[in-house]
């Protein structure tokens, strides 16, 4: 935790993302125009969320292998920060959508429910609901070891069911959202070389920021626990 180089890297990458992402030239796609720069923020939020949830899953598995409460604290905090990134993904998506999809000439976009039916939005909503349920389950159990064990089991089960909803189902339902075939923003044909130079550093930067926040939260939690135990 005391290693500092990756925190410096995180700050540098994010500063680079903001400066280069706003100033450098981007391809002009008719429907998107300059809003395409939101790719460096919106898509990165979902990448960071998935990575944080995966780290949470890893910690849940490690807890069931070693029964060390440290892993349980990790799993919970990574899930919590993952939820925050998911919310930010929704926020950035809503801003992007309001400039590209929301077409005043198309009556289908007058109502909220027409847009909320979008498969990718459903998938993301399911993901967030699952982790909210995880938090509720945790808070409903008082015994520390039992809570750790049961919530780890739910974490693993939910993650395994979450994958089909986020990666498979949106691909078999019709959608407006880009990235219908294959992995959005990862396909070589999807995104221009110039954007790739900023997109990949941005993903790493945002993920490192998420990990940084989580390590701080974990340290705080461990200190609090120590106060209770002693």
């Amino acid at each position: 935790m005391r290693k500092i180089w990756w925190k410096i890297a995180c700050v540098c990458l994010l500063v680079y993302t903001f400066i280069a992402g706003i100033l450098l030239d981007v391809p002009h796609v008719p429907a998107l125009q300059e809003t395409i720069r939101n790719l460096y923020f919106h898509v990165c939020m979902w990448f960071a969320m998935m990575i944080l949830f995966s780290v949470s899953l890893y910690n849940a598995i490690m807890y069931l292998r070693h029964f060390d409460l440290k892993y349980d604290v990790n799993a919970r905090q990574y899930a919590a920060v993952g939820i925050v990134f998911g919310m930010l993904g929704y926020g950035t998506g809503a801003i992007w959508m309001s400039y590209t999809w929301a077409d005043p000439n198309n009556p289908a976009f007058q109502s909220f429910s027409a847009i909320a039916r979008e498969p990718k939005l459903i998938g993301a909503a399911i993901g967030l609901l699952v982790y909210f349920a995880y938090m509720v389950l945790r808070d409903s159990i008082n015994d520390m070891d039992k809570r750790a064990r049961i919530s780890s089991v739910y974490n693993i089960f939910a993650y395994a069911m979450l994958f089909p909803s986020i990666w498979i189902i949106p691909r078999i339902l019709p959608s407006l959202h880009p990235g219908q075939e294959g992995n959005p923003a990862l396909n070589t044909s999807d995104i221009d070389g110039r954007m790739r130079l900023i997109f990949y550093p941005a993903v790493i930067g945002w993920t490192l920021l998420g990990v940084w926040i989580t390590t701080l939260k974990i340290r705080l939690k461990l200190l609090n626990d120590k106060k209770i135990l002693s």
Binding site: A133, V136, L137, F157
Partner: peptide
Amino acid sequence: IAAKAQQNAAIMAVLGFPIIIP
């Protein structure tokens, strides 16, 4: 899971609905 958490069927619905949607 719900039985182990000593909860009623309500928590089962909370846990289950998001998972069953797909």
